[in-house]
Computed example of a mutant assay.
Amino acid sequence: MSAASARLQRLADRMVRSGMHCGVTLSMFDRETGREMHIGVGNLDSRTPCFATGVTKLFVTAILL
């Protein structure tokens, strides 16, 4: 596990321990190297509702709503 993915994992773990989130998924993409990192922690399954962030996703969600 790289230092960046370990740091991302610690962040996700801390978010779930705070009690404000039942589960967290985080994804990162490095344009220069093409590397992707995906972290999931907590009580998540295929039926867990989630809100994806990002400028494009927020724009599409606003249109759909």
Rank of each mutant, 00 (worst) to 15 (best):
S18W: 05
V55Q: 09
S5P: 07
S18Q: 05
F29H: 12
R10I: 08
R31F: 06
S18D: 14
R14G: 09
D45C: 13
V55A: 15
G19K: 01
T48S: 12
A12N: 03
S46V: 06
L8D: 06
C50E: 05
C50G: 08
V41T: 14
L58A: 13
M37F: 09
G54T: 06
N43D: 13
G23D: 05
R47H: 15
M37K: 01
L8S: 06
K57S: 11
F29E: 09
L65M: 10
G54K: 05
V60K: 08
M20E: 15
S18E: 12
H21M: 15
F29W: 12
S18N: 06
H21K: 07
G23I: 07
M20H: 09
L65G: 05
R17Y: 08
M1Y: 06
S2T: 09
R31D: 10
G23T: 02
L26N: 03
L64I: 08
M37H: 09
D45S: 14
M20N: 12
L64C: 05
V41N: 04
G19I: 09
L11M: 11
R17E: 15
H21G: 02
S46T: 04
A3F: 03
N43Y: 01
V16A: 02
G23W: 02
F51C: 15
M1P: 14
T25C: 10
L11P: 05
V24E: 02
S5F: 00
A3P: 10
R10V: 14
V41C: 09
M28W: 11
V24T: 07
S2V: 01
L64P: 00
T48E: 02
A3R: 04
V41D: 02
T25W: 00
M15L: 14
A62C: 10
F51A: 15
K57Y: 12
L26C: 06
V41Q: 01
C50Y: 14
S46C: 03
L44C: 05
V16H: 00
L26D: 03
I63K: 09
D13A: 13
T56Q: 04
R17V: 12
I63S: 07
N43E: 12
A52F: 02
E36V: 11
I63D: 06
P49D: 10
F59R: 08
T33N: 03
D13C: 05
V41H: 01
A4N: 06
S18I: 11
D13L: 11
D30Y: 06
R47Y: 13
G54H: 04
L58Q: 14
H21N: 14
R7Y: 10
I39F: 00
T61Y: 12
A52S: 04
A12E: 05
F29L: 11
N43Q: 07
T48W: 02
G34M: 05
L26I: 13
A4S: 10
S5Q: 06
V55Y: 03
D45E: 05
R47G: 15
V24Y: 01
L44W: 00
R35N: 14
S5D: 03
S27F: 08
I39M: 00
I63P: 00
A3E: 13
L44E: 00
V16S: 04
I39V: 13
G34E: 07
T48L: 05
S18R: 02
A6E: 12
L44T: 05
